[in-house]
Design a binder for these strands. Sequence first.
DNA 1: TCCGAAATAT
DNA 2: GATATTTCGG
Length: 377
Amino acid sequence: MTSYSSRTQEVHVLLVERDTNHLSSTMQLLEFFSYKAECVDHASAALSMLSNGKAQFEIVMATINSPDTSTFKLLQEAVKMDLLVILMYDYDDDMMARSALEQGAFLFLPKPIKMEYVKYLWQHVWREKTWKIKEKEQIGEVPVFNRMSNGFGVEDQIPLENIMSDDDDVAENGSKSRKKVRKIWTEWTQELHDKFVDAIIELGEGRCYPKEILELMNVPGLTRLQVASHLQKCRKGNWRPSKERKRRNSNIEASPEIKATNTERKNFGSMPVLTKHFEQHNLQTNENSEKIQDPQIYSPTNNNVFDYHPQVESQKNLSGFTFSQDNVEAPYMEQDGVNLLTVPGAFMPNEPFMFDFNSVTCGDLHAFDIDRPNEPG
DNA sequence: TCCGAAATAT
DNA sequence: GATATTTCGG
């Protein structure tokens, strides 16, 4: 008969359950296996417990209550804190399951919770802990799925090619053998790049350091080295989003100015030059274009002020920022020769591009969540 | 320790 | 040959 206490007594579980029956049975299970467990009856209570930091937890187990959406908020926060999150449900829901897992839940389990699950939970905590230590030992990189959330119910498979297998024999012969942690080829998608842009804009010229950018981006699994590398590329002005990559002409030499500034001094913390990138399709213009009058204004990020026309369908088409040596540094939009999106004080680019509001974010806030004046309706 | 440029790998 | 990773000097 094995005693579990030696393995579980350092594992702290936060249980969120308001069904008293399930609460008590689960608590009994947890205590039987010697976990340190605490319980609250609402996700919001759990959130404040996590945020006040008085108690440390490794595992969060929460029941999804249909009217209570804060369970998912709890999930997000807990995942950020690297906690193991188990969501429990009364009624199965495929979409919800996918969403939960997509957002980083470890398990999505039916109630009542089974002993077999509780029994071995400590192993997952242990694994995470030891891996973290390993990562710190070597300046190693992270075994995490570094994909971005595509939102509710969207299955974006992680391309197998992205997981580069390597000869990672765990030659544990005491010597400092070069045991490699599996590496992941991180693709800088437009979405990831957008976060990067938000971060550097927030930091500003002279303060763009990889470490700080990484923190602001808040992307699990992304490493400082990767950010540094991307920053390097963007400063040189030859990064393009994947759609644009295969095009010839996309590999442009850095301008003399950029080269000069790069060699003169180190330019620590310098901010890459922002410019637009073009969306080839949807650019055909027709002649019977009309001027749009009295543009509405709202401000999605920082100091930028955008003119927005909800009635203009083409505003739902995309671009984003990219970097190049062009002296263009602002988001802007044009339709039929009329500027719709402008940033005061910015250089005006000389070519039109389309813009997707779905891609505009303001921290965690989605552009479409921002109240806009005079929305038709 | 962190940054940035350059070399290297896929 | 483009892009991500690793190395290396400061």
